[in-house]
Design a protein around this nucleic acid. Sequence first.
DNA 1: TCTGGGTAAATTTTT
DNA 2: TTTACCCAGA
Length: 765
Amino acid sequence: MSLKGLHRKFKNTEFEGTEFDPIAAFESEGIPENPHHIPMNRFSEPSNDYSQYFEKIESTHTKLARALKKLNDYQLQAVFSNDKKVLLSAMVGSGKTTVLTHKILYIHFIKGVPLSQMAVLTFTNKAAREIKERILSFYENSTPPDNNELRYFGTFHSIARQLLKEHPNLEKLGFTSTFSIMDQEAKEDFLQRLILSHELDVKYRNKLDKRLKLYRNEKQILYGNMKKPDDLDQLLKLSREEKQANNLMDFDDLISVANWLLNQQKTFLPNWIIVDEFQDCNNEQLEFIRYLNGIQTHFFAVGDPNQSIYAWRGSTSKIFKNYIEDSSCKIMRLPFNYRTSGQILNAASCLLQEDENALQATRSEGKKLIIRNHFDDHQEAYYYVQKFKELYGKGAAWEEIAILFRTRQQITIFESIFQLEGIPCEVVSKTSLREQIALFWLQKLLLSGLHPNDMDSILQVFTSSDFGCLNAGKRLLTTFNKFTEGKKFESKLEAFSYFLSVKHKKHNQHIELSQKLLGLPDYLCSKKENQDLYNYLSLDVFLKPTSINYQEYVSDIKIALKELDHYTSKNYFGDWLEIYQAAMSQVNLEGHFQINNGIQKISNGVRLLTIHAAKGLEFDYVFLSGANSGIIPLERKKASHDHLKEEKRLLFVALTRARNHMEISWHTQSNAWNAQDGPSYFLNSIPSSLIEKLSPSVDAPIPKHEEEIKIESKASLKWQIGTKVKHPKYGTGEIISANTQDVICDFGKFGEKSFASAWAPLVKV
DNA sequence: TCTGGGTAAATTTTT
DNA sequence: TTTACCCAGA
């Protein structure tokens, strides 16, 4: 039943006089209890004496023994356990990564399991890197393991890629082991190109990804106002064929093709499978784990059912249920939170409705959870300006302050006001390579040289508005297709090079570039000494030393090439071409060229981020902004019980990011259409003794009017008619009109688009 | 090619 | 509530 229906049904009946509680309403409808819930009696409790283990470790590995001594009994139980199947329910802030790394070290050093016999699976590169770094830091005086030994430590996708490359049957599917990986954006380009060159009729083209998902999962072909099916079906078929023909896989293919092959023949059965953030697994990832699971394999998964906030992305909601019901699975827990001060943690755990003992505070009581009312987001932003200056004055670091939001749209206004008022701030979100023009081009350049059938990369190289020579679009595709019809070429790149030399004779520099790209594999294999890709490809010619951005482009590219050089030398095993291909796959999987060590972020400033982006992070001071009902939980047309529960866990995640100070704000007059009056009704489940309700302090400066801010921020902007700009969706365009209100931009094939001047998502090219 | 009616969707994001 | 855009008719 829909939320509205429930509301009607329960209004003026059971819930008369009290606020309508959709979760309770759903539950009284007879919807089963939380599948994430693990009953207390299901947990195996630790013993209180692990000294027998220590005697043995101390005599041989003093450093490890010293590290393990710092752990509590629950953590030691998980580290020492030798059960075949363990699920560790790690409460928020309970030292999950510590347990994970110590467990790996323990089974390696004490149980003698080689690292190459472990599959350590994570969801993000960041987590994978952290685990590897912590392990390497244990090898102070001895030779650390090399990358080859750690080749099954990584993200699901990178391990799937590794197994695909090693699989003997890969070629039977039409792929070779040097397949290239398309990131999300490359996949979009790929599909759009297929639509153009095959003249397909596909509706809602900029919602393609969503439509494909609906089609794959629910066979739904109609979308929005569509009355009859379009060519989506045909697009999928063409896409499959083209991917095989050109040796390309997208992120989803990595896992699904790996599963398909492993189903035919299992090639790697590790001694141990260790999974991080287990609650985020989707069905395909679970299947992947099952294919790695041999008779001898030990399985150890760590997750937190209370931090499951990615069901919308496909994580399996019943994931814990199956393990709870499986009696061969030992279930352990880490109940002690070391991060958040007592009162805030207690308030957060009121959102869980779990057993009381599940989550226990270890820190002192600290301050209460603050719920503060602001008139609107402007007033709130100015309140923070004052507040943060005060905190900074008292010695707090900017980086220890974070403002969390439910949606990204809420962030922009804070960013512009902080910039005006001189509060250093940084929006935390993953940046796409596409935003760094030179690096994006370099990526496509190398990809076309290394994978000469990757048509999309070739097109990006030669139709780049900055460094290319041709115009992208349908006309180019048709003429190229016509030109190659009936002719035989070794590769798409060769065909394109020939096409250029016949049809576009005047672009001799680009013709030369295409020939250099054709020779790239040979160059890499023969001239490893003093390799200099920058000069080999004569990049100076294309980056144009006279252009304003020349210096920036050159330094970006040189740093990137250095990273590649480092990576390829470090991982070299006898084939330079292959290692460069591997390096570029890594760039695709990570979304940047910094593939060797951690991403050094040398920024300082208050962090502005969504709650989702904040998962796994912690700060001294956390502010959750604009938490009205309707925003948390975010109102949708079709609300479901599961959706609401997930939103509640999201609020839980937000509150548990804080170490010492947690403040939730709500607005009297919100700018969001779906915001209702009053703070999130989820907060009603927190007893008032744990909450301090406040209004902004009276001496806060009078907030500036919205118009004023728009004008001021416009003054610092650069929208002038004729400026070339880049938009994340529409690509490059040109400003054709700009005033205090809006800016209108022409994007060629996408036509003219208008944006609000103050926060148009445009980047000057 | 342009206009207006009608209807669904709007959010979170890693690889 | 506002936006996007399909689709039918001018």
